[in-house]
Design a protein around this nucleic acid. Structure first.
Lengths: 182, 182
DNA sequence: CTAAATTCTGTACCCGGTTCATCTATGAAC
DNA sequence: GTTCATAGATGAACCGGGTACAGAATTTAG
């Protein structure tokens, strides 16, 4: 297994993605054309779209986080909120330079920010499906919506470089205790 | 005031929108081309795009709801959650046939559903700005995110024809009391 | 009536994305 | 090593949303 064919495919996919990210980092997402990417990666435009369904996917394919899996696989003594909180607490520490580049690229393009919303909508649906095993369906959807919107808000803070432990704490306190006091 | 120029503009804008909605209702959003709309409305394509910034805007311009204004203008004795809840309670009763058509059009087009997310992101930002007058900024953003995600979830139920008084009640109970019990 | 400011129009173009027919390289069988 | 089916790559033509531009038409002001 892992014949020549599949190795080459993986190689091509990787080359396309790397070339694209380099160009995006240099000149911004909106100022790079898919024709340029294809040319620089030495593939035909059609080929590029066989590997990535859209230009946005070149960037966003790598940013999906599997909240549904995280929640489904949590310890017995942890609540749903705990599971998501634990994961977000790790986010605060992420500071690889490569992540910073990614954030810069995404933040600088309205198209990518919209695409990010779409990704998150998918995550929300997955999470709702998992929660539906423990709650009635409507509650599951409402919880998934609130959880993901909190994650998104924290992600935005992260993008602005303002994500702190305290912000995470307050976010999940609000989720757990509600807005009655506010 | 209300010179000929402005009257004609309003007229043209209205004609474009009506023609577009008729075509969308007949054949679906994705199967109607902006060239067709422009032709049917007897304007040039360029003109159409001067009135509406995108094809999606032809449908979505009419669905913005001013939650920020609703919250800002609430009675002194009502909480933020109350204000939004009151507004959503009215939504349950909406059943004009024209609304049903709109829902059918939006639900039938992925592009419009994505566009709707973008509209909601804008509403969230506006709401956060209003809440920032009463809360610290991070809390304001978190609250706005949770409120709007709840509204969106309810809107989805509405789209599916499953929005009930009970669903609204449970949604806002969850918002006010949090997820601790779940 | 004339001149200036606005708006509309057609044309040509760009870019993301798809279709199609064709060609090349791979892997399997002999 | 040759043959052959097939997956995959290719270029070129095309589609639809959206924009740039230059010029024509029309409202408004003087």
């Amino acid at each position: 297994m892992a014949g020549l064919r599949e190795r080459k495919k993986e190689q091509t996919r990787c080359r396309i993605e790397q070339v694209a990210m380099r160009l995006f980092a240099e000149r911004g997402f909106d100022d790079v054309t898919v024709n340029e990417i294809a040319e620089a990666a030495e593939v035909a435009k059609v080929t590029l779209f066989k590997y990535f369904p859209s230009k946005e996917a070149l960037v966003l394919d790598g940013v999906k986080e599997d909240f549904a899996g995280i929640v489904a696989a949590r310890q017995d003594d942890r609540s749903v909120v705990d599971a998501v909180r634990d994961h977000c607490a790790l986010m605060v520490r992420a500071d690889a330079p490569e992540v910073a580049t990614l954030v810069r690229i995404i933040s600088g393009s309205p198209a990518l920010l919209v695409g990010l919303q779409a990704v998150q909508a998918g995550q929300r649906a997955e999470l709702a499906a998992v929660l539906a095993a423990e709650q009635d369906e409507i509650t599951a959807r409402l919880m998934a919506a609130q959880l993901m919107s909190t994650v998104t808000a924290l992600q935005e803070l992260f993008f602005e470089g303002r994500l702190t432990d305290d912000a995470v704490k307050r976010a999940f306190d609000l989720l757990e205790n509600g807005m009655r006091g506010h």
